[in-house]
């Protein structure tokens, strides 16, 4: 298999996806098959070919820097899983039991 279970576990962690062990194992088998299929690209010589990230020849797009109304606070917060006053409520970034060191 082109991917090890540890590879899948590491990438799932990078992607912030909590997955069960059976799901990781299934993912390993399925992703390995997909990567094997994708490997056919190596049959193609692409030396000197410029990568194409975007189908249109559009470069930078500028607009005038004019202030316009933003989404009202109520509308911005209407889907928030947790609210504290006019703010989004989120879990603490640092462990609150220990002093923040910087």
């Amino acid at each position: 298999m082109s991917l090890s279970l540890d590879d899948v576990r590491k990438v799932a962690k990078l992607a912030r996806l909590e997955m069960s062990e059976p799901d990781l194992a299934r993912m390993q088998v399925q992703l390995s098959a997909i990567l094997d299929y994708i490997d056919q690209l190596n049959q193609l010589n692409t030396d000197g070919v410029e990568p194409l990230a975007h189908p249109l020849p559009v470069q930078n797009v500028f607009r005038p820097d004019e202030p316009t109304p933003s989404l009202p606070v109520d509308a911005a917060l209407q889907n928030a899983p947790s609210k504290v006053g006019d703010y989004f409520g989120v879990p603490a970034v640092f462990d609150t039991d220990e002093p923040v060191s910087h």
Binding site: L41, N42, L44, T46, V49, E50, P51, L52, A53
Partner: peptide, 8 residues
């Protein structure tokens, strides 16, 4: 590699 193939 994929972006190069996309160009082709």
């Amino acid at each position: 590699k994929a972006l190069k193939v996309r160009r082709l």
